[in-house]
Design a protein around this nucleic acid. Structure first.
Length: 292
DNA sequence: ATGACTATAGTGTATAGA
């Protein structure tokens, strides 16, 4: 079973490329970020014709997260407990936009689904914009709430195969930042505060790709020839709980998806799961066969 | 060069991204 995450930077611009890649790479479940549209604008037919069902969470032209899956998705969640909001309510979305823990409107940055035994989240962590910007505090508060809730989920069920997948907007280690316009002490993505926040997710969830793919970026800015100069950043991650990580048999960063016509500025991050390695979680199901 | 490029809303110019 192959699972992936991809910040697609507008699904309406990118859907042909995304579906082609999913079919070519035999992707079972894709977590998308920055779909940049409302559900009624999402190009669902292209995915349906390739055999994928969709769950979509988008409020306007900003942000937006989704899942495409060959397998049934259940227990759909569009936010998590304690999530903070930001900015003003989105016009026309008053009926569906919830209020966050800070009293501000919740943006379309989180979508949770259950596929088989797996609990999966597509996450678009706030950018932060600049050190000291209100958006930077929002980024840290958003991650803090996510970490606390993840700890609660695994506190209830330590064997839960949980994956937090998406664009984390943090380059956690020194080798993850290759863009010279970012400087520790001056820039987002590399600040000690952000890196400490990222590190605090361990051991609740751990990067399941890095042990298999120790180097490589997942994002290159469109500006200044960052891709040909390979001045990118590693900011997209699949963070798995112990049970999830134990079932991972492979991983990849699909660097070639930054090439060619009209690429996203991010590339897909992939992992392979062997459902038979889900262990306790599966045995607890009284030996019923896996649905995959 | 508070820029460089790309996308969206809307049709000139602003917001956002990282």
């Amino acid at each position: 079973m192959r699972i992936a995450t991809w910040n697609v930077n507008s699904i309406r611009t990118r859907f042909g490329r995304v579906v082609d890649w999913m079919v070519r790479e035999d992707i079972d479940v894709l977590a998308m970020q920055e779909i940049k549209c409302r559900p009624e604008q999402f190009p669902v037919d292209a995915f349906a014709q390739a055999g994928y069902e969709l769950e979509i969470h988008g409020l306007n032209q900003w942000n937006g997260v989704a899942f495409a899956s060959r397998h049934e998705m259940t227990d759909v969640a569009r936010s998590f407990a304690g999530i903070p909001g930001f900015g003003a309510p989105v016009k026309g979305q008053e009926a569906v936009q919830s209020v966050g823990s800070n009293g501000l409107p919740v943006e379309a940055r989180a979508l949770g689904v259950t596929v088989g035994d797996l609990r999966l989240w597509s996450l678009y962590v706030p950018n932060g914009r600049a050190l000291g910007d209100p958006h930077f505090d929002y980024k840290l508060a958003w991650l803090e709430a996510l970490r606390r809730e993840s700890e609660a989920w695994l506190g209830e069920d330590p064997d839960l195969p949980l994956a937090l997948m998406g664009d984390w907007n943090i380059a956690p280690l020194e080798g993850d930042m290759g863009d010279p316009s970012f400087t520790v002490g001056e820039s987002t993505h590399v600040s000690p505060e952000e890196r400490a926040m990222f590190a605090s997710f361990s051991p609740t969830v751990e990067d399941v790709v890095r042990p298999i793919v120790p180097e490589g970026y997942t994002f290159w800015d469109y500006k200044a020839g960052r891709f040909p100069k390979n001045e990118g950043m590693r900011i997209d991650f699949i963070m798995g709980s112990r049970a999830f990580a134990d079932a991972v048999t492979g991983a990849a960063i699909a660097r070639d998806e930054r090439k060619g016509d009209a690429p996203s500025d991010h590339v897909p991050v992939v992992c392979d799961i062997d459902p038979s390695l889900l262990g306790d979680t599966f045995e607890d199901e009284d030996d019923r066969p896996m649905v995959f």
